[in-house]
């Protein structure tokens, strides 16, 4: 295998990123642009790899890079640490803990998540109470809890 051929999953990732950014800037919803970019980037990988023995490895590496890119975008979208870093970056002189909490507190975090979960039907608000709607995020939560127990040995970061 040549060096440039070995880099095929990286070329696929570059195509994925370029097309995802173009689609998002053209107004496509973020999640849809991620799927569109991933599908577009897989075309050159499958095309060049063909039915060669390298195809499973190429697709595995490309799939993993696509998964990482999705999480990179998701971190920017939802991660509390990234938002805190942003608030500190914009403050210039630094912020006290109270200052940070005033700019980004638990009330805002909860409201943003409840809105996202109700908007996409994962939670349903009825008669002043929340209920589970579609079960996709609940299934993910249960898988993540099982993984935490298996790897770290606890269900939550607050467990002793």
């Amino acid at each position: 295998m040549t060096v440039s051929r070995a880099l095929l999953p990286v070329w696929g990732l570059i195509a994925n990123v370029v097309l995802q950014v173009a689609a998002a800037r053209a107004g496509m919803p973020l999640l849809r642009s991620v799927f569109a970019g991933f599908a577009a980037g897989s075309v050159p990988v499958i095309w060049v790899s063909g039915l060669s023995p390298a195809l499973p490895g190429d697709m595995l590496a490309y799939g993993c890079f696509g998964y990482c890119y999705f999480h990179f975008l998701n971190l920017g979208e939802t991660a509390r640490r990234i938002r805190l870093v942003r608030e500190l970056f914009l403050s210039r002189g630094g912020l006290s803990e109270e200052g940070l909490l005033a700019r980004y507190g638990s009330a805002e975090i909860l409201s943003a998540r409840i809105k996202r979960l109700t908007d996409n039907g994962q939670l349903v608000f009825r008669g002043g109470r929340y209920f589970i709607g579609r079960p996709a995020v609940l299934v993910m939560a249960r898988i993540m809890t099982a993984m935490k127990l298996a790897v770290i040995g606890r269900k939550s970061e607050f467990d002793a």
Partner: peptide
């Protein structure tokens, strides 16, 4: 802990 996953749980 992810807040969204904790809310749903």
């Amino acid at each position: 802990d992810s807040p969204s996953l904790v809310i749903v749980m």
